[in-house]
Amino acid sequence: MTNHNNEASPLYYSRVAGLGLLLMAILAMFSNFSVFNGLIISDDAATTANNIISNEILFRCGFISFVIVLILDVLLAWALYVLLKPVNKNLAILAAWFRLVYTAIFGIALHNFLNVLQLLSGTEYLTVFTTDQLQAQVMLLIDAFNNGWIIGLVFFGFHLFVVGYLIIKSGGYIPRMIGFFLVIASAGYLIDSFAHFLLPNYTDYKTIFLLVVAVPGVIGELSLAFWLLIKGVKVQQRR
């Protein structure tokens, strides 16, 4: 009975990781594209504040979706560690820590959105700030969130690199092509993050950097998710 459970456990972890990746993708897309990108206008503080006030429930739903993503990040770090430790335990731990550090930084950055809601829903702030000042404070908080997320994505990029490397070295029980895509995606995240820090005119090239991140990232992470859900039994066979 014990042997049967031991054999089944890698399959269980592969399902957890695959399902976690898919749920994260769905929730992150909802928060990013349906909520925040639709409500936040980077160069228009007044419109942004009015959008959030008019769509407060939607904004709160986007925030909650990001919180769920944080929880899934922790579960995914754990599941990937279990799956990849037979390849190299030390590197699997390193990959997990990179993701956990990213999650912690992202969580700290996310609290800025709570402050945005507090500012816009608290009438007491109207006695302290003018409308323009209040709107400027909101944009500062949103920028603080974005800057924190960018710093976190540096650690996420290194996480993807280590995971991709371990998959490449896994002997084929997870397809090496997925590992190559993850390594390329890691380079995209790192290039984009450092470009934010180094290029004063980053916005002029924003679309290009978005493609550099999105294309290999979507292919690599979704390929891994579907493979773990559909073909994860191969991990079981290797074990």
Score class of each variant (00 low, 15 high):
T48R: 01
G18T: 02
P216E: 10
P10I: 03
L70N: 07
L126Y: 11
A92D: 01
V128M: 14
L199P: 09
W227I: 03
L166W: 05
S54D: 15
A92M: 01
L228P: 01
L198H: 06
T47S: 15
F30C: 08
G172E: 06
A185L: 07
V87T: 02
L182C: 00
I178W: 08
L198N: 12
S65T: 04
L153H: 05
C61L: 15
R99N: 13
I26C: 04
G217T: 11
V215W: 09
D132P: 06
L134Q: 11
Q135G: 04
H111T: 12
T131C: 07
L23K: 04
S65V: 01
L153P: 01
L21Y: 13
A28R: 11
L11I: 06
M1L: 13
G217K: 01
N55L: 10
I71P: 00
Q236F: 04
F98N: 03
A187F: 04
I40K: 03
I168E: 09
S121V: 08
L182D: 02
L126V: 09
V163S: 05
L80M: 08
L39S: 00
A25T: 14
V116Q: 03
I178C: 07
F181G: 04
A225R: 00
G217R: 00
G217W: 00
F113A: 03
A185V: 09
Y81E: 06
L120D: 04
G188K: 10
Y189A: 11
W227Q: 01
V154G: 01
F106G: 08
F180R: 11
L110V: 03
S186G: 07
R15C: 08
I93L: 14
A185F: 04
V162P: 01
I40E: 09
F161L: 15
E56N: 09
G220Y: 03
F181E: 08
W78V: 11
D73R: 05
